[in-house]
Amino acid sequence: MKEEFNIISNLIEENTRVLDVGCGNGDLMKFLQENKTKDIRGLEISKEKVQNCLSKGLTVIEGNAESDLKQFPKSSFDYVILSQTLQAFLNPELVINELLKVGKKVIVTIPNFGYWRVRLQLLFKGTMPVTENLPHEWYNTPNLHMCTIKDFYNFCSSKNIKIFKSIALKKSRISEINKSNLNYKNLDSHLGIFLIES
């Protein structure tokens, strides 16, 4: 978690306006507030988590990214963050489009379904993968649309979404993703972090 927060924080310029979509209990918001910018908002679907955030004095709105991002004007945030939530949406493509409208830049992090540990579970055990990052069983997972680093990379190029920066994370090892090492990073990283723009 800490590494992911650091990477996200390093992608953000100081004193900018940030929206964290699916902000959970506000840990990332708090981290960014202490390190980067005071001007940060959150959107979260769980009442309990929204209440936790508000209790800490964080500005969070209870709402659903699929329907409630529309209320923010175009380009009203310098950065919109979607941390490990894309896979939980009914329609991830729609959400990405909404994010790109609301934010001048968008940071998306995805738990990589192409990670070799995940692949091995399906290959050898023959069961749906359960990992530290993806702890749910197939029958209770909130994750509807799992994807790999390569899937997301290809999605961006096919939709003409500019990738400013793409970073792979394995444990605490950070590396850049590019066209030539894509297949390797897709196999050897548990998390992908993308800075994109429409």
Partner: peptide, 14 residues
């Protein structure tokens, strides 16, 4: 409030 970029939090209490 959001449409004018105001700083707004919101929750619906059960």
């Amino acid at each position: 409030l959001n449409s004018v970029g105001a700083d707004v939090g919101f929750v619906e209490i059960e």
